[in-house]
Amino acid sequence: MILEKNTPAPEFDLFSTPDQRLKLSDFKGQRVILAFYPADWSPVCSDELSLFNESLKLFTEHKAVLLGISVDSKWSHMAFAQSRKLHFPLLADFEPKGLVSKQYGVYNEEEGESRRALFLIDEHGIIQWSYLSPDGINPGADGILEALESLDQSKNQ
């Protein structure tokens, strides 16, 4: 089962580049959008990540950072990010394979890939919104933006 609202987000520590690792706790005090996707280079993923890439400014306005995550290796991520000119980190859930995807409840055992899923994690490391998209469908960014806005509103109350 995909982790749902009000669940503490499991910590992770994964390669984001060949010589750099990122931990969820590095982002304490910030909002994190975690975008799991099946594979680098596949057409739908590229569309989804390209769309998010173009939307970074809006995410930043809501004080959120975006992290992509799949089971691809750090080297694949590096080439993929360069090719698609992505301006956000891609995390390699590569060894042990899919461990973080499994912890978030979005691992596809049959394909050996992450499912296409989105999480919004708040400043305190709590999941505030999650969404599992059909693998073949680009979920768009409207769900993330709505979740960010409702977080803004509940904060202002």
């Binding site: 769309l51 809006l58 768009g140």
Partner: peptide, 11 residues
């Protein structure tokens, strides 16, 4: 663009 995103435009 932003209005499109909010309306769910994904491509």
């Amino acid at each position: 663009y932003e209005g499109g995103l909010r309306s769910g435009v994904n491509g």
